[in-house]
Design a binder for these strands. Sequence first.
DNA 1: TTGTCTCCCTAGGGGAGACAA
DNA 2: TTGTCTCCCCTAGGGAGACAA
Lengths: 316, 316
Amino acid sequence: MKAPGSTTAVAGATGTSPSEGGERKSINPELWYGCAGPLVSLPPVGSLVVYFPQGHSEQVAATMQKDVDVQIPNYPNLPWKMICLLHNVTLHADPETDEVYAQMTLQPVNTNDKEAFLASDLSPKTNRLQTDFFCKTLTASDTSTHGGFSVPRRAAEKIFPPLDFSMQPPAQELQARDLHDNVWTFRHIYRGQPKRHLLTTGWSLFVSGKRLLAGDSVLFIRDEKQQLLLGIRRANRQPTNISSSVLSSDSMQIGILAAAAHAYANHSPFTVFYNPRASPSEFVIPLAKYNKAIYSHQITLGMRFRMMFETEESGT
Amino acid sequence: MKAPGSTTAVAGATGTSPSEGGERKSINPELWYGCAGPLVSLPPVGSLVVYFPQGHSEQVAATMQKDVDVQIPNYPNLPWKMICLLHNVTLHADPETDEVYAQMTLQPVNTNDKEAFLASDLSPKTNRLQTDFFCKTLTASDTSTHGGFSVPRRAAEKIFPPLDFSMQPPAQELQARDLHDNVWTFRHIYRGQPKRHLLTTGWSLFVSGKRLLAGDSVLFIRDEKQQLLLGIRRANRQPTNISSSVLSSDSMQIGILAAAAHAYANHSPFTVFYNPRASPSEFVIPLAKYNKAIYSHQITLGMRFRMMFETEESGT
DNA sequence: TTGTCTCCCTAGGGGAGACAA
DNA sequence: TTGTCTCCCCTAGGGAGACAA
């Protein structure tokens, strides 16, 4: 068991250490958003949001594969949308796969509270990252057992600390932290004919530790303290299909609806998980965004918000 | 993607193949019971069982770590126990960890149907394995990178095909299927001074593929067709703490209770997952066993069935 | 009987420039 | 500019008996 706080794990701390449960410290938001992709945004804490129980249920149905199509009981007191106050958002990453997700605490509010409605303005506070970063899709050579990672020239010059070109060849040691605050160490060298930037020593441990394959992407961010952050985005592989082994998907569906109905009846807070890369539909959206869509007739009753599909190039 | 049916994967089919979802064919019951441990038994299909919603809820609470202690709504129509007909049992194994679990379809029955009660006799139909098998807890040497697996003499002679002792040294190739029907190939050799049975080539791939550590156990079974089956039992490590990323534990708790209440009200079937190694309490037990306990005053209202703790030696 | 050590030897992998797209 | 190949070298690890618990 490591001490909490900054774990200065030596290079080669294979991320597969199965002993650590949960996250030791809070996830870096820039890195989280980087891994989530350019199209993902979360409503700000304290704002009003619209929660769609049905959309939420669909995310879970998409994550699990439904086993049987048992009828779900009706929840007559459950509306198709609920105006909620977003109390809390915590960012998470699966310790096994580095998959990012968010936990949100919602509290249903009185719908006829006109004041609250007006308070939610349309300030486009894009809490998205503006920091310097680069994202590269891994080639077959990058993930092969022979040799390291070929760093695009522009990317290396923009993100990495400058090399001392008086050395022959110019090289340095890079340290980068992943979502779990593990430190990965790489040898960054500028060599070859023609010259190019490469990550050699340490790279293969990262690839095997994160179980990366050609087609997956890596993401380097230089934060405001000039520290390097390191994330991954996996290619869209099969939907994991974690058949749960804990709860039937029926019970999950029911659980979502019953929890929402209970919270709605009591105006009590409840908790949802939002997995930006797994789900096709957003089920928690800013009230302002919803209102705007309503009033510009872009949405009609029964329609749902759908996330645009990410393109391969996005965020590169 | 492999063809369904018997996949004659070559030795070294690392079980970590992340592409296969679900099981291709039904799990071998003998192997499943072997991996589950000697104290686990499942009620026979078609029999009457007692289902405890609270015990079920506790298993899930034990599997997840509860994040917040939000109050669970009351389900006034939900009794503390439900007599159910066990419609169906399917055996499963987690494709990542090989953890065994069972899926059961239950249907609440009319409690005042005396006839059904009497029909559930106490025939101790122990559907447990009587086949030849051995189970060994892995030593540091067994899991080290240098060398293979030391097979206990009695075990090798009882389970493995006999060696041809005219060879020098006597050796053969063994093939064994795991829970997912993957074939693992090992070189079985009798050598050393003093002589002993060893598994060499192929063993380290198995250890790394299953991510076995010293203290975990392996299990070899010879079935009625003289085929070798191969399973694992992991040492009791930390409770995985899969913080789900899908559903809050509150929603799960609610889902269990609401699903049970719904099924109870409508006499409709519902599905539960039973994880024998994760949960401290059984929540589906044969009605006959329950009645026997009741009538011999071994159980009182409010008590729950608890599984004995397995000892390290059990099943060896 | 079997767990651990050490020794030996080889296969696989890291690290380099060549070469071409 | 950068993806792939091949070559070279070295080390991690498999496979063997020694030895002791």
